[in-house]
Nucleic acid binder design. Structure first.
Lengths: 192, 192
DNA sequence: AGGGTTCGAGAACGTTCGTTCTTGACCGGG
DNA sequence: CCCGGTCAAGAACGAACGTTCTCGAACCCT
């Protein structure tokens, strides 16, 4: 009953996630969202309740549609070296954890609900890294060795986001070699 | 000539750095700054020109008074293991790169001047890590191996800032051991 | 066909934003 | 002594903020 919705809700949340990832929560105004999403103000408040509600939906979607699938894919195929290379390159050039990174720094400390979502995303990253690194990184490096490598991945993403150049491919491979990762284990000859 | 200033400018910038680090640039209002600094609005604009001017001064001070000295200290004394342990623990419990982290994620991409300062801070961190890691991390791990370890330090600080638990001490020592770091090279027995 | 309900369009709300202005207190040099 | 200049105090500015309201159009169900 009633008039059917004229916009794709999931697509709106996806666009909101990109805007929030790009400019942060405080840096993105409701006007920006209304313009960028092409969704009317009233509809936005009817569906999501508030700007924060839309932000939480965007972060939730970011985890479900990008972080978790990416983590799962990296956990099964490819080794540690590939994971580090893709992390430094921005995975596939997309947002690639940009919203997770932004939320972790800007909102996780002051908004408990955001903090819980960020913790969930980071835990998924830990699991993926543990699987990619295999026994070398996940076990012999200590009971929580994967968290160290996950921190490295986060740091690489942060550097890329800040616009500073990342390490060379040779460094990435040499680094992975220290953990006996698949693909580039052993020798660490700078080839470039 | 004229009435002398009644507030400590350097102390005001220091407090501003703490506020900006805690709530970010967009999340800190001029009213917050006026209240927190105890400096009048007019004086603030007379001295720093704008909110952004104060932010740049705070970031500049953060680099000069906290990041660079910390990097220098870590570069000369202590090994990689100690650096990682201190990074995970928040160095000395202070802001410890919080403003650098916040600026890197929130402002470096959209404000070139902030981006330059952030790049300077990250470069200083690279240098410090290279010295702490010694030949093992700085050379044999590749020409830019230190950047990988610096990324790990950044990731650890980000995790701490987001409020998620960091790796155990055993993991940190085992990780450092992979690079032949001073203090905990070799064995990686979980002692806790 | 018509009632009930939800939608999209946009004006409007009060608040807060960053910034500027006005006013009077204070200080050093002639 | 008093004058030029800098200071602190706070009101005030227009713009932008997040949110709410009013209104007519569009649609499903009976």
């Amino acid at each position: 009953m009633g008039r059917p919705r004229a916009f794709d809700e999931d697509r709106a949340v996806e666009t909101a996630a990109e805007l929030f990832a790009l400019r942060g929560y405080e840096g993105t105004s409701v006007d920006d969202l209304v313009t960028g999403l092409g969704v009317h103000r009233g509809s936005l408040y009817k569906v999501f309740g508030s700007k924060r509600g839309l932000y939480l939906a965007a972060l939730r979607r970011h985890l479900d549609q990008e972080v978790l699938p990416l983590a799962a894919a990296l956990g099964t195929a490819g080794g540690l070296a590939e994971l580090l290379v893709q992390a430094a390159a921005g995975f596939d050039g997309g947002p690639a954890g940009g919203l997770l990174l932004s939320a972790a720094v800007e909102r996780a400390g002051s908004d408990p609900e955001v903090g819980a979502l960020v913790a969930e995303g980071l835990a998924a990253l830990d699991t993926a890294v543990a699987r990619a690194a295999g026994p070398a990184g996940g076990e012999s490096a200590g009971p929580a060795g994967a968290e160290m490598l996950a921190a490295t991945v986060l740091g690489l993403r942060l550097r890329a986001r800040a616009g500073v150049g990342g390490p060379s491919a040779a460094s990435l491979l040499a680094f992975a070699g220290r953990f006996g990762g698949t693909g580039a284990a052993g020798g660490a000859e700078p080839t470039g």
